[in-house]
Simulated assay, not measured.
Amino acid sequence: MAAHSRSLKVLSGRRVGVVPAVAAAVLISAVAAFAQTPAPVRVGVAPAVTKEISKGADFVGRVDAVEKVEVRARVKGYLQSVAFQEGQAVKIGEPLYEIEPDLFKADVEQAQGALERAEASKTLSEIQLKRAEELLTKQAGTAVQRDQAAAQDQQSAGAVLSAKANLSTAQINLGYASITSPIKGRIGLTNVTAGNVVGPDSGVLATIVSQDPMYVTFPVSQREFLRVTGDAKTSLDNTGAKLTFADGTTYGQAGKIDFVDVKVDRSTDTITLRAVFPNPDERLRDGQLVRLQLASDAPQSRVVVPQAALLADKDGVYVFVVEDGKAAVRRLKVGGESGSDMVVESGLSPGDVVIVEGLQNVRPGAPVTASPVTQNRS
């Protein structure tokens, strides 16, 4: 009886020991299964869409006046008056500055007197030459006398030419005393005021810039130039262009490319292009920075994705797409920018769902919970 009782205790002890071991094994299996299935990552997604993309591109340019004149004094004298208001529009020939003309008038009169004396001497030398020739014909004079008279006549002719040149110089200098506008445009600040002595060494008195039309010059890298032109045979001459100001507003007048430089700047590896724009309202000002967009005659439908979706590594550019509830890598070949989007040359199709938010927690093959992200795709 005692032996039987001990057997039951031993058996009972073995059964009691089996239950915790089995429970532990089941728990370990459940934990392992849970660890092998990570929780889905919450991500924001947006579809790849098609968009009409022009072949052109955006560039930063600077407005340049077609004509620009630095007004300078060409003779030295006392500045008698300033005949314009700073910032006003001026016409060709409109008076700007007046240098005291009295000294220059005196120079003209003096040169005029010298010319009259030279002409009188020329008249006398002609008479003397004619008389010497007559005497030589009648054998009453000598060849030496005739030659001396001829030489005197030639000297008198030279003196007349010199006197005429001196008179022209004096008259020109008198004209320089009145400084007028050589172009039509708008004049800036004056650097001198009446009462000062001005001359060729006084520097720029004021600057005049033309207003309509205006140029916009901008540098283009060789890569962008080839992308825009497509091939070496394509010409950008007369290609349409639009302008955007610094505040984002669009300039209402359309322009066109009128010049492509014949050489590449070696220091920057860029080509200088120039567009011409009408400026009837004078909204464009010389030196102003603007953004220029080249127009395209034939926009093309291209696949675009938000730039926020793009990632890069040593192998290039890629995005994460959602496939069957999991994240998958797609390698891309991209083109240029289009607003907040990037043009995709290959690697995506319209409708593919790309991840744009929560990328820091995404791994290839990881399950994701996707939510649409609202973005402005203009």
Rank of each mutant, 00 (worst) to 15 (best):
E337M: 07
A30I: 13
L96F: 01
L273G: 04
A327E: 04
V368N: 07
A132C: 14
T234Q: 12
I99P: 00
A35W: 10
S346I: 08
V304T: 04
Q88G: 00
V82Y: 00
T239W: 06
Y176G: 02
L115R: 14
A295E: 12
N196S: 14
D247A: 04
E357I: 03
R186H: 08
V276Q: 07
N166T: 10
V262M: 05
V276Y: 04
M214T: 11
A308P: 02
R266E: 11
L79S: 02
G335I: 05
G195F: 05
L311R: 06
V31A: 12
A3Q: 08
T180L: 08
K51S: 03
D247T: 10
P350T: 08
V317G: 03
V66H: 00
G335Q: 06
A232V: 14
D324C: 01
P101M: 04
A309V: 07
S301A: 04
D147V: 12
A150D: 13
R6L: 08
G230E: 07
A65F: 08
V22C: 05
A111M: 02
P372W: 05
N173V: 04
E94V: 03
L310G: 06
V160H: 01
V160Y: 03
V160W: 01
A30E: 14
A328M: 09
P372Q: 11
I99E: 01
V228N: 05
Q253T: 09
L96E: 01
P200C: 07
R15L: 13
F245E: 10
F225G: 03
T234I: 05
L226T: 11
T250S: 14
A327M: 11
A165M: 15
Q152L: 14
T217I: 15
V319R: 00
V204R: 05
A25D: 07
I187C: 11
E70A: 06
R15F: 04
D341I: 03
I53D: 00
P364K: 10
G185N: 10
G316I: 15
L348S: 03
Y97I: 01
K130C: 08
V276G: 07
G77N: 01
R131F: 14
S5Q: 11
T234G: 09
D352A: 07
V90K: 01
V368Y: 08
L11R: 14
F320A: 02
T37S: 06
V303S: 02
L115K: 14
F245P: 10
A157Q: 13
S296M: 11
P40A: 05
T268L: 03
I53M: 00
G336E: 07
E357V: 02
V69I: 07
T249F: 05
M214K: 11
G56D: 04
I179C: 02
L129A: 13
A35E: 08
Q85L: 02
L96H: 00
S29K: 12
Q211P: 05
Q36C: 04
